[in-house]
């Protein structure tokens, strides 16, 4: 089956700033494909090229076999888009916006259902300018889905949403996916990426660093485990650093902090037992996608 989205050797610069250096991606039918990366990495620029909003300097893009620039009319009918920054007329009411947008598409979704699903039912008569940031965000998700698209590209899906609204939105997106819609998700939330995405692309400084499943990405970042404990008697760090599964040992006060791969815990507890050291306050943390992100890009994910 041909991929739903195919991006090859994409390059885009603004004046003197190279936003996308060299990005290649394929997104398969029915999957949720996540795009992660630090601020300014070129995520929005990449998806806007795919949407046909920007003209790439180089490279080839196909969405459902269509060229985003040449086949605009056909593409816009089948592609739902949530822009990172996109607005509506200030005085347009929520229900008016949804009704209007649903009239643009050949086979629109039930916009009242979307209104309920996104918790906007009581805001139907509110003007756009009077919505809170999170409510605007929800409306923008609704507008991206109102045309019953085959493919949806959602830039910063849940930025600005409260935790409950975020979970509701995840449910909504899973429902949309279960109907076979292919989804591209730009996100800064590791939890969101882990929960929703089948595959992730990590983009940094305009290049794809890695494409993998969330679990695979974490594993390939070799972030492994972090073990923390208070030894029952003074001990030499070399006991642990000599272990092949341990990559580093640091101390914080009485605490010993050990970094290592997935076997590190086993190795550490064996050595401690052999030396009759008891590990008090033992804590083990499995490295998360967030650790992988930091490791692979050298940056913290945006805390928004």
């Amino acid at each position: 089956m041909p991929p739903v989205i195919e991006v090859r050797d994409l390059h885009k610069r603004y004046d003197d700033k190279i936003a996308v250096d060299d990005v290649s991606l394929t997104v398969q039918e029915g999957e949720i494909f996540g795009i992660l990366g630090p601020n300014g990495a070129g995520k929005t620029t990449t998806v806007e090229c795919v949407e046909g909003l920007r003209t790439p300097d180089r490279g080839e893009i196909k969405v459902l076999g269509l060229d985003p620039l040449r086949d605009r009319a056909e593409l816009t009918r089948r592609l739902g888009v949530q822009l990172q920054a996109g607005h509506l007329p200030e005085r347009l009411q929520v229900a008016e916006a949804l009704e209007l947008y649903s009239s643009f598409y050949p086979e629109p979704a039930d916009w009242r259902g979307l209104l309920d699903g996104l918790g906007l039912a009581d805001k139907a008569k509110t003007r756009y300018a009077k919505l809170s940031g999170g409510q605007k965000q929800r409306l923008s998700i609704a507008l991206a889905l109102v045309g019953s698209p085959r493919v949806a590209i959602l830039d910063e899906l849940t930025t600005g949403l409260d935790p409950q609204a975020r979970r509701d939105t995840w449910d909504l997106i899973e429902g949309v996916r279960s109907r076979g819609v292919t989804i591209v998700l730009v996100t800064h939330f590791m939890e969101e990426a882990e929960r929703l995405c089948d595959r992730l692309a990590l983009i940094d400084a305009g290049r794809v660093v890695m494409v993998d499943t969330p679990a695979g990405l974490t594993e390939r970042a070799c972030a492994g485990q972090r073990i923390q404990f208070r030894p029952s008697r003074p001990m030499d760090d070399r006991l642990l650093t000599s272990l092949p599964d341990v990559s580093g040992v640091t101390r914080r006060g009485e605490l010993v902090i050990v970094n290592g791969n997935d076997n590190a815990l086993n190795a550490v507890t064996t050595v401690l037992a052999r030396n009759q050291i008891v590990a008090h306050q033992l804590r083990v943390e499995q490295a998360s996608l967030e650790d992988a992100f930091v490791r692979l890009t050298g940056k913290r994910p945006d805390p928004r």
Partner: peptide
């Protein structure tokens, strides 16, 4: 000009209506 500044026209570019 307000529509252009606020991205209303840009948002419309992604719909079949334009």
């Amino acid at each position: 000009a307000g529509y252009r500044e606020n991205g209303v026209l840009r948002r419309m570019r992604t719909t079949p209506v334009g």
